[in-house]
């Protein structure tokens, strides 16, 4: 019962974080901030979902495989984020700053 409740909680938290990532991609003003939303919120959501499902796995091997996805996704996401941000910076994309005042 406790495991089921924990899984439900983690899956819902993952859905919320994924939603935050999508919302950030839709609403943030420039490339750097969108990259930030994508790289942080989405990977946190993925980690929550994976942990919640690993609690329900019927064998240890399946649970470990589920949990192995997360660091790999983190590495891939960090590499892409760094690459795109460096490219944007080299192309002269100016980071967004608060316009008023």
């Amino acid at each position: 019962m406790l495991l089921d409740a924990l899984t439900t909680l983690l899956l819902l938290a993952g859905a919320v974080f994924f939603f935050a990532g999508t919302l950030g991609l839709l609403r943030f003003p420039d490339v750097y901030t969108r990259l930030h939303a994508l790289a942080k919120a989405d990977n946190l959501g993925l980690g929550c979902v994976l942990a919640g499902l690993a609690l329900q796995a019927d064998s240890l091997a399946v649970a470990l495989k589920l949990l192995a996805i997360w660091p790999l996704a983190l590495i891939a996401s960090a590499a892409v984020g760094y690459s795109i941000a460096r490219r944007a910076e080299r192309l002269g994309v100016v980071p967004w700053q608060e316009q008023d005042q």
């Binding site: 993952g14 990532g21 490339v31 989405d42 993925l46 892409v80």
Partner: peptide, 23 residues
Amino acid sequence: PTPADRMLAALLFGSTGTGILVL
């Protein structure tokens, strides 16, 4: 608006798609 935003959306498809596949 910029090509990078489109590519970021494609990357979002990658990470969210991973989540959907696990689920």
